[in-house]
Measured scan of single mutants.
Amino acid sequence: MTEYKLVVVGAGGVGKSALTIQLIQNHFVDEYDPTIEDSYRKQVVIDGETCLLDILDTAGQEEYSAMRDQYMRTGEGFLCVFAINNTKSFEDIHHYREQIKRVKDSEDVPMVLVGNKCDLPSRTVDTKQAQDLARSYGIPFIETSAKTRQGVDDAFYTLVREIRKHKEKMSKDGKKKKKKSKTKCVIM
């Protein structure tokens, strides 16, 4: 069974824990209790493949930012979460993405942009803004509501699919490099 290491990042209060708990335990946590770091595991079937999701729910508070490099190193894919009623959390996505790329030393890291709290009427981040940002990053965008469960499975499952595509691409690139290195030079 394939294991996928997913990391949920975003500013404090955007609903990272609520999304994760909704996926794992099928219930909505409405009281806000700032996370330092929590880890969850769940076995699911995605596109006919049974897999184990190892999900790291991270601290959004700035005082825990020193811990970010460590979990970013171990993560295979990242859910970059903002709240649709919090423009600052949307603007912060850029910083999370840049930090992930720096730590992973790669421009090509599996990510999904997630606009959470889409059940709320007080939207300050337009869907088109988020779609445009995701398009500019070359990553999928999904709106979710941890409260109603809308888009929750889709967000995590899409990230797994992005990781699969990335692994497939990397193995193809690896095979191309191996083929090239088999060419021999004969000096007579």
Results as ranks from 00 to 15, higher is better:
2 T>M: 11
2 T>D: 14
2 T>V: 10
3 E>N: 14
3 E>V: 11
3 E>C: 11
4 Y>R: 13
6 L>D: 01
6 L>V: 13
6 L>K: 01
7 V>A: 11
7 V>P: 03
8 V>H: 03
9 V>N: 06
9 V>L: 13
10 G>M: 02
10 G>A: 07
11 A>I: 14
11 A>R: 07
11 A>S: 10
11 A>N: 06
12 G>D: 14
12 G>Q: 12
12 G>L: 07
13 G>L: 10
14 V>W: 03
15 G>T: 00
15 G>D: 00
16 K>T: 04
16 K>F: 00
16 K>E: 05
17 S>E: 00
18 A>M: 12
19 L>W: 05
19 L>S: 14
20 T>P: 03
20 T>W: 00
20 T>K: 04
20 T>G: 05
21 I>A: 07
21 I>S: 07
21 I>L: 10
21 I>V: 10
22 Q>L: 04
22 Q>Y: 04
23 L>Q: 15
23 L>A: 14
24 I>C: 06
25 Q>E: 07
25 Q>D: 15
25 Q>T: 15
25 Q>L: 15
26 N>R: 10
26 N>Q: 12
27 H>W: 15
27 H>C: 15
27 H>A: 15
27 H>D: 15
28 F>Y: 11
28 F>S: 03
28 F>T: 04
29 V>D: 09
29 V>R: 02
29 V>M: 12
30 D>G: 09
31 E>I: 08
31 E>S: 06
31 E>F: 14
32 Y>V: 04
32 Y>C: 05
33 D>L: 02
33 D>A: 02
33 D>R: 00
34 P>L: 02
34 P>D: 03
34 P>T: 04
35 T>E: 00
35 T>P: 00
36 I>F: 03
36 I>Y: 04
36 I>V: 04
36 I>T: 00
36 I>N: 00
36 I>P: 00
37 E>K: 15
37 E>T: 09
38 D>N: 04
38 D>F: 02
39 S>G: 14
39 S>D: 06
39 S>M: 07
39 S>C: 10
39 S>R: 13
40 Y>Q: 00
40 Y>M: 01
40 Y>H: 02
41 R>W: 05
42 K>E: 09
43 Q>Y: 07
43 Q>K: 12
44 V>L: 14
45 V>D: 12
45 V>A: 14
45 V>T: 13
45 V>Y: 09
45 V>G: 13
45 V>P: 12
46 I>N: 12
46 I>A: 13
47 D>R: 09
47 D>Y: 06
47 D>P: 08
47 D>E: 10
48 G>Q: 11
48 G>S: 10
48 G>L: 06
49 E>Y: 08
49 E>Q: 12
50 T>A: 12
50 T>K: 10
50 T>F: 08
50 T>G: 10
52 L>H: 13
52 L>C: 15
52 L>K: 14
55 I>N: 08
55 I>W: 04
55 I>G: 03
55 I>M: 14
57 D>M: 02
58 T>R: 03
58 T>Y: 02
58 T>Q: 02
59 A>D: 02
59 A>F: 01
59 A>H: 02
60 G>F: 01
60 G>M: 02
60 G>Q: 03
60 G>H: 03
61 Q>N: 14
61 Q>H: 12
62 E>V: 07
63 E>Y: 05
63 E>C: 07
64 Y>I: 04
64 Y>H: 05
